[in-house]
Write a protein that binds this DNA or RNA. Sequence first.
RNA 1: GGCCCUAUCGUCUAACGGUUAGGACGUAAGCUUUUCAAGCUUAAAAUCCGGGUUCGAUUCCCGGUAGGGUCACCA
Length: 437
Amino acid sequence: MKEVVVRIPPSPTGNLHIGTARTALFNFLFAKQNNGKVILRMEDTDKERSTKEFEEDIKIGLEWLSITHDEFYRQSERDEIYKKHLQDLINSGNAYISKETEGDRDEVIRFKNPNKEIKFNDLARGEISFDTTELGNFVIAKSIEEPLYHLAVVVDDFLMGITHVIRGEDGISNTPRQILIQEALGAPRPIYVHLPLILGPDRSKLSKRHGAKGVMEYKKEGYLPEAFLNFLAFLGWNPGGENEIFTLDELTESFDIEKIQKGGAIYNEEKLRWFNREHLKKMTLEEKKEYIKPILPQLDEVHERALPIIFERIETFGDLAEAFKEGEFSYLNDEIEYDARLLLWKKDPDVSTTSKRLENVKEILEKETWPMNAVVARESVWKYAEEEGKGEILWPLRVALSGKERSPDPFVLIEILGKDISMKRIGDALTKLKGND
RNA sequence: GGCCCUAUCGUCUAACGGUUAGGACGUAAGCUUUUCAAGCUUAAAAUCCGGGUUCGAUUCCCGGUAGGGUCACCA
């Protein structure tokens, strides 16, 4: 069998967006699965709208996602090639220079439409047929020097030996034109696969109008590339089993082009967040530390011990930065601030009994062997807590340690904070209560 | 409007003629070391409609309806 060759053909007239990334991913998965080749081709024939910045954004976006390529081309650097084929088409009578009365210029190059029915087999959808008569003699180049999309695509796919064209559903209506040009050029027909579109909440093609973000935005927001890829892959395809968490390699292994969905899929960021959390869970502590560095450059031992519970509370690294900014983990700082009244359990808001209880807890804890983990800390205080009422003991203790209305439970805090800080904070709470008496 | 594509819980989807129509996200309730978070358990929630074919249709065919895509000297 012939080697599989696919292409990823973005147009650098905008940032790398979700749809392009998903199409790129499917091309990549299919090629890798078949030991094929991936060609990245910048479709920058529109010199007005194409920019180097967008090209760069697309390249680094794909790189971030580990969607690699084997060859790279720019259509803007292939004018001579298109010119030659354009000339051939004109010479063979399949195209002609047409005088125009409308539009920007006096003459353009049009394709001589044979007006026939085109049938092609789509791997995801079955047979699709078109009557090309209504297409008319469509324009394929502004001039012999300035090829347009359809011509450039067909010539490139031909010359680059593309075997499979995997693209969005919006490419279906381009297919008959391209097949017509192929036939005139004597080029082989690639196998077509049209992917369902990614939709916005209103079921129309996802676009900036829906507030759709560029791929690099997700990197900035602290998503894991592999989670993003996993999510993207499951938009329009799934392996059928009940497992949903896949690495890139696992996706490559189980990808099945025949299982591609036909209907469009609404993009749902909630699910993306969930995928991210699931991938986060699979990371080792060392990997997490690496990621957390930019947010928390100085990882002291308290923070380090807190890592597991920090990660329990976030879905993305963006959440993590946000949580620190909002002070959710303020109890990890050296100093905490809070109002003494917070120490009072709402069912029993009595200052002197609360002081007494905290005093007793302090004594109990002091006798223990430190450092103490959460399980031991619990065992140590538990009996007393059951005697006095759990809330009555646990609430003030937790507030004393965290200074917050909401926080992890006191035993976890004891483990994280260690003896010195824990004891100091209980002492401080006692002082506060006295001042409030 | 012409042409083309599509149609299972709110969302992503499984079921390739026979299932109590399964899972996940989200939602709600409950449980736990009575604040959160996480976790666990449970619940509500779907085959667009109408005709065929068949002993039997989510599944195959036809029609309708709805949604989408595309109709550039953009890609």
